[in-house]
């Protein structure tokens, strides 16, 4: 049976982990924003901008990690724009987010055309290469799947772990979570809800941009206009699927990526000869909607998500 062969192959799981990596960065970024009470729909545009910024920086001569840093900073700047509109001014997070996605995407495409006016195909860079972790990569099945990835993939998993640690084990994490659950209580402690929320959006947006940069610096070696292709929106669904918890969100991202890797492989089997390829391409989006529907009954949503905080108001 072809399906079992696929599911038992190391290359399949290696692909799933690779596909999951940008989703993990962006999902963790969105999760940080939402835990503080801000829905960041700028995510799609921030990923596009991060993908471009990291790539163009490396193309311009920076080392790969320099490109990651440029993407991070680009995302943080866009996050700052979002947070100024959405936090102190308390404007509709839906409108601001969609507006920021339009702005970041068009700014990216504009910059691309200004920097590379006459190119028919975008230049390539030398992307991150897989790094085999000694000993662990020799393990059967899990070795090639988990421990022969690019450094940015390891970084994604480390980031998720650190985020969980900070959110649940530090005063800062407690403040962030409280800002999303009960901002009045945070203000009563003498802390600034505005500063906490803005900080969370800035940092979270930086991680989203690194997720975008994963596409240009690790998954591929070039930038294309439609390369993010709705991944940002999928990450919003993954945050809900993960019940706003980093561990579950990572699990969701890997599960989702496994389905994605599976549909790519199924296209090349007997099923792919019968079923139109568009059906396979639809699967990620359909799965995301299904995930939202299945999880809708759970009440783990941060209580103050999308509720602006104006001091003095009860």
């Amino acid at each position: 049976m072809e399906l079992i062969d696929i599911l038992l192959s190391a290359s399949f799981w290696a692909a799933a982990i690779r596909i999951a990596s940008p989703l993990i960065f962006a999902t963790i970024g969105e999760l940080i924003c939402e835990r503080a009470g801000v829905l960041n729909l700028g995510i799609e545009g921030i990923m596009v901008a991060g993908a471009f910024a990291g790539w163009i920086a490396v193309w311009g001569g920076l080392p790969l990690w320099g490109g990651v840093a440029v993407a991070l900073l680009t995302g943080m700047m866009l996050g700052l724009v979002h947070s100024i509109f959405s936090v102190p001014f308390g404007l509709s997070q839906h409108v601001v987010g969609v507006g920021l996605t339009l702005l970041a995407t068009s700014l990216t495409f504009y910059t691309y055309r200004v920097v590379l006016p006459e190119v028919s195909s975008p230049p390539k860079i030398t992307a991150f290469q897989p790094y085999e972790i000694p000993l662990l990569s020799d393990l059967p099945l899990v070795g090639p799947a988990l421990f022969s990835q690019t450094p940015l993939t390891y970084a994604a998993f480390i980031l998720a772990g650190l985020t969980a640690l900070v959110l649940y084990r530090t005063p800062l994490g407690l403040a962030v979570r409280a800002a999303g659950e009960n901002p009045q209580a945070v203000a009563a402690q003498g802390l600034s809800v505005t500063a906490i929320r803005m900080g969370a959006v800035v940092v979270g947006s930086g991680f989203m941009a690194v997720g975008g940069a994963f596409l240009t610096l690790s998954a591929f070696d070039s930038f294309f206009f439609d390369m993010v292709n709705g991944r940002g929106w999928i990450c919003i669904a993954l945050v809900v699927f993960g019940a706003w918890k980093p561990g579950k969100a990572v699990l969701g991202a890997v599960l989702f990526a496994a389905f994605d890797a599976l549909q790519i492989r199924l296209q090349q089997t007997g099923i792919g000869a019968v079923v139109p390829y568009q059906v396979f391409l639809m699967m990620p989006y359909i799965l995301s909607i299904l995930a939202l529907v299945v999880m809708s009954r759970r009440a783990e949503i941060p209580a103050a998500l999308m509720v602006p905080f104006n001091k003095g108001e009860r």
Partner: peptide
């Protein structure tokens, strides 16, 4: 209906559905 019956945020579902429907049109 997903919004009124199950409380699913319509922003994400309508956005994701754009991608699904465009693939359907492509088919």
């Amino acid at each position: 209906l997903l919004k009124t019956r199950l409380g699913v945020d319509e922003v994400v579902t309508t956005l994701l559905f754009n991608f699904i429907f465009l693939l359907f049109v492509s088919y």
